[in-house]
Structures are given as structure tokens and as C-alpha cells.
Nucleic acid binder design. Structure first.
Lengths: 188, 188
DNA sequence: TCGCTCATGTAATGGGTTACATGATTCA
DNA sequence: TGAATCATGTAACCCATTACATGAGCGA
């Protein structure tokens, strides 16, 4: 399962050299919906990647702002990235969802509490759905504007966006179904 | 986000006392679809829970088999579980999906490779969907048979099963859509 | 006889989050 | 004046995976 962030970083650095800080920006604006990371973890992972010669770095001094440490992918890094991309995932991608865990163990007597929890989630997922429908497409265009040589990647990005859209719509449907079940008093 | 396994263990121990080994069985048969764990992690977490007085344990000697260490939830453990159950999740439940990450960074030129990956996942998700539709309902009944006093929990378990079903159906739809897009040669 | 189930764990390593620490510029 | 952005990182801690270690009984 492990070592995913590594490949996210290599993937972006394969587009163009950048700093850890910038990587966080790209990650949280694009892959963030299915792979996110904290800055501290990004810096740590970049260090490892430098140790294993998959990236190199150099300092760019700046005035009025902190110096930038710019990372560049190496040939070895590119090779590892390619190889990872070509290797199919044969296991199931595992899912963790703490809401379901909580629901599973909830007291069936506490109907009101369950409904509150579901309503909160409903709103969150509705917002997310809207984001996928309205904001993300323009984000994708901006991304392609910054790196016009990557325009052919847009269908892949669009596929991941579409996944998010379907996921949120499914989640909303499930919450509405479940709410209905718990809101209408049972006949027993 | 953290410390979920703890509550999964407390949740099951709240049903009845059992060993770490048995807990793994229940987890991987029921909550496994949205919260799974390795045995070694379960043993470790049980130790922590004992140190914080949320569970107690005693040894039951056996003949021909290794002795069993049976864990029992304490009043403090129950209180913590209740409190966790009552606290709503206000952030978004975060998603990590390595398939999407791989797809995002795939080379759009490698259409064949992308199709292979998607087809493999398609089969996995179809199997999972079948499992949710056919096997899981009987598992839920068995569960309720072992602990008939928990029959009223069945609707909650059913809700988590239904989530799995919708999730897999959504995933399959997305793969089929995406496959179609990459299988039919683009018009450009 | 081979592998599975029952049953316990330890050790090493890796991955991830939260808190801490610093500090200038810019915009409201 | 206060918050956000840019920009770097360390330290402590927690969570999770993989490999290792042991060993009897049972069914194919």
C-alpha cells in the first residue's frame, strides 16, 4: 500500500521543478481529493527522495522572502515513477471511513443523535459535490494553462474529477436514504 | 482523525468479552469494509487500552490450544465509547485512493496500460459488489444470531452494507465510463 | 504431509499528524 | 493592526505494516 506520497511528489516534479511549498499547493488543489499531505510530511519525503537520488535540490536566494529550495527530478526518479505507473494495482484499494464506523456502533436507541450526524455530513458532501461540479473544472484549465505541454493529460485529470463527482453524489444518495429510514418511525 | 481502531475494539468488546484473535475475526467480517486492522496492531492497541483502564484482561487456559487472553470493557471504556459515539464528525471524512493517483499521473500516451489497470479494478469491484449483495446480508444475520440482544442494531449494520453496495456500483459505473472514453479513439 | 485454524506476541521500519519555531511582505 | 501568504524546517508522537517467532490440532 505504502509510499504513495513519494510518487505524487515525483509526478509533479516530473512536470516541472518546484519547492516543497509549491508542491503542497498543487497537491491540495488537484490530487488532494484522493491523496493529500501535510507540509511537514512533504519536506520529510523530499529529503528521503534526495537521499535515494530520485531528486536533487538547489537553493534560489530571494529578497524579502525566504530562500527557495527547488527540487528537480533525476533520471532515476523518472525511471522509478514510470515503473510505478506501469505496475497495475491488483489488490483492492482500501477504504477507511470513520463515519461508517461510528454509525455501525451507534446506539439504535439514539435516533436523534444519528440524524444529527447524518445531516452534518449531508451538508459537507453537498458542498464537496458543488466544488467538483463548479470549481474543479476551472482548476483543471488553470493547471493546463501553467503547463500547456500537459494539455493531453487533461482527460486523465477530468476522469479523477468525475470520480469525485460520482462519489459525492453516491454519498448524498446514501445519506438521504439512511436519513429517511431513521426519520420515519419504524412500525414496530 | 486518529485513534479509530481503539473505538472499533471498544465497540465490539461492548457487545461481549473476547480475545484479540476473535476481535480480528469480527472486524474483518463486518467493519472490515470501512475499517480494517492487522492482528499485530490489534494486540498493540489492546495493550494500550488496558494501560488506560478502558479494558481489563484475564487468561483462560485451554488444552491443546494456546491459552486465550480475554478482554472485557470497563465502565471507563464504555463511557469513552459513548462519548465518542455522541460527538459528531464535523470535518470531511478523508479519502485516499491510489488508483486515482496512478491514473492522474499516467502518461496519456499509454492508453493500453490505462485500460489494463481499469479492467483489473473493474473485476475487483464487481466481486466486491456481489459480496455486498449476496454474502454480507447473511453475515449480518449470523452476527445477530450470535448476539440476539443486538437485533435492534441490524438496521445500522444494514446501512453500512448499503453504503458498500452503492459505493461499488458507483465505482463500476465510473470505470465503465472511463474505459469507454479511453477505448474509443479520440476524434482529434 | 501440507496447509489451515487457533492463539499469542515482538521488533523494525515506515508513514502521517500536530505542535513548535522563525520572520518578512502584503492587503484589508 | 491583524491575518494571510511565502518559505523553511524540527521534534514528538501516533498509527500501521511486514517480518519474525512459536506451536498444537485437524482435515484433505
Amino acid at each position: 500500500m505504502a509510499i504513495m506520497l513519494k510518487f505524487a511528489l515525483l509526478g509533479f516534479l516530473n512536470y516541472s521543478p518546484m519547492t516543497g511549498y509549491e508542491l503542497e499547493g498543487w497537491i491540495n488543489a488537484s490530487t488532494g481529493n484522493f491523496w493529500h499531505a501535510e507540509l511537514s510530511q512533504i519536506y520529510k519525503t523530499l529529503k528521503q527522495l534526495e537521499k535515494s537520488d530520485e531528486v536533487t535540490s538547489h537553493i534560489e536566494p530571494q529578497v524579502g522572502k525566504p530562500d527557495r529550495r527547488v527540487y528537480t527530478i533525476t533520471a532515476a526518479g523518472k525511471a522509478n515513477l514510470e515503473q510505478w505507473l506501469e505496475t497495475p494495482i491488483v489488490e483492492e484499494v482500501d477504504k477507511k471511513d470513520s463515519l461508517l464506523l461510528k454509525l455501525f456502533f451507534s446506539s439504535p436507541a439514539d435516533r436523534a443523535g444519528i440524524i444529527v450526524q447524518l445531516r452534518i455530513q449531508l451538508r459537507l458532501h453537498q458542498q464537496k459535490l458543488e466544488h467538483y461540479r463548479l470549481q474543479t473544472p476551472t482548476e483543471i484549465l488553470q493547471f493546463a494553462n501553467v503547463h500547456p505541454e500537459l494539455l493531453s493529460n487533461a482527460p486523465l485529470w477530468e476522469a479523477t474529477r468525475r470520480h469525485g463527482e460520482l462519489y459525492e453524489a453516491m454519498y448524498i444518495q446514501w445519506i438521504e436514504e439512511t436519513l429517511q429510514q431513521f426519520e420515519t418511525p419504524s412500525k414496530e
